[in-house]
């Protein structure tokens, strides 16, 4: 009960944030919070395979970037009036582009996941990384969509009833999608499907003895997670109005993993905390020095070596259930 009230209060504070930022005289905070909410969607999606499934995917930036490019490519075709591959007309309607992004993320996660899940352990880490790198190079070489310089998007998507040029409305939209997505992931994690996934993490052999083939469960989790990452990428491109292969860079995959670990592996709200903390930390440190990674690297090292369970375990210690 107390936890629910706390969550509700947190949500109310998050909703009120644009007004508070306006009142405090720093409207840029809304943009920062938008980025946090978007990364939280991506990190929560990664958490499904990484935390619940125990599958260390080092390539989720690929789906993040694919979602972004879905928006960018549809925008480019909307502008030029030519259909994509001669079939699909361009669009800037947000429901359409977000759907397209999730489709692209899901289909590619299905293909790459089906191949990657044939391997275990370190091979899985390396192969997911390598596939992400493959997509990165593909988009670097696609000169039609900006190559390594990326694509600028002059107009944000249109969502019925909202004016997304307004930073606060974009933020509320992202926040709303985050809450819906977290709710969905929570249901998934607590369903029979989620139990099988967690069981496979603990012991694949035991699941096999129980007569459950884990491969299809893992694949579905991987696809769902790829769709979530693509959704986040699509929102990010709308927020930044820019897409480039940098979204698929391997270090982005690393950052997403760090958000999950920093917040708390396999917890419902951990990835959100991790995304807020990491984006906030990067923002704060880059304000201090240009060489902020020089400080961030050792911080990560310390977190991994000494702070097991992440921020969520800290919260649990302060607020015992």
């Amino acid at each position: 009960m107390r936890d629910r009230i706390l969550l509700l209060l947190l949500l109310l504070a998050a909703i009120a944030l644009p007004w508070l930022a306006e009142a405090a005289g720093s409207p840029a905070t809304t943009g920062l919070a938008t980025r946090m909410a978007i990364y939280a969607i991506a990190a929560a999606s990664l958490n499904l395979v990484l935390g619940y499934g125990g599958l260390v995917s080092f390539g989720h930036a690929a789906y993040f970037g694919l979602g972004g490019y879905a928006v960018g490519i549809l925008y480019a075709h909307w502008r030029s009036g030519e259909a994509f591959l001669g079939l699909i007309p361009g669009s800037i309607s947000l429901p359409v582009t977000l759907g397209a992004a999730m489709l692209a993320g899901g289909v590619s996660a299905a293909i790459l996941g089906a191949l990657s899940l044939r391997t275990r352990g370190v091979q899985f880490i390396m192969i997911t990384l390598a596939f992400a790198q493959m997509l990165f190079f593909l988009f670097v070489s696609l000169k039609a969509y900006g190559g390594d310089e990326g694509l600028s998007i002059r107009r944000r998507g249109e969502f019925p009833g909202l004016d997304l040029r307004d930073a606060a409305q974009l933020y509320w939209l992202c926040l709303g999608i985050l809450v819906l997505w977290l709710g969905l992931l929570r249901r998934v994690a607590h369903s029979r499907f989620g139990q099988v996934l967690a069981g496979a993490r603990q012991s694949e052999r035991r699941m096999a003895a129980l007569g459950v083939a884990v491969y299809p469960y893992r694949l579905v989790a991987f696809i769902l997670s790829g769709m979530g990452a693509a959704l986040a990428g699509a929102l990010m491109v709308n927020a930044l109005r820019f897409v480039s292969p940098d979204m698929m860079h391997w270090s982005k995959s690393g950052e997403l993993m760090i958000m999950v670990i920093l917040g708390g592996l396999g917890t419902a709200l951990g990835p959100v905390l991790g995304a807020v903390a990491l984006v906030g930390l990067e923002y704060g440190l880059s304000g201090l020095t240009e060489h902020w990674q020089f400080i961030l690297g050792p911080i990560l090292l310390l977190v991994v070596m000494f702070a097991r369970g992440g921020l969520m375990s800290l919260v649990r210690r302060l607020l015992p259930a």
Partner: peptide, 9 residues
């Protein structure tokens, strides 16, 4: 992976 990623940075 994460610790050595920190080392790379």
């Amino acid at each position: 992976v994460l610790a050595t990623f920190g080392l790379i940075l």
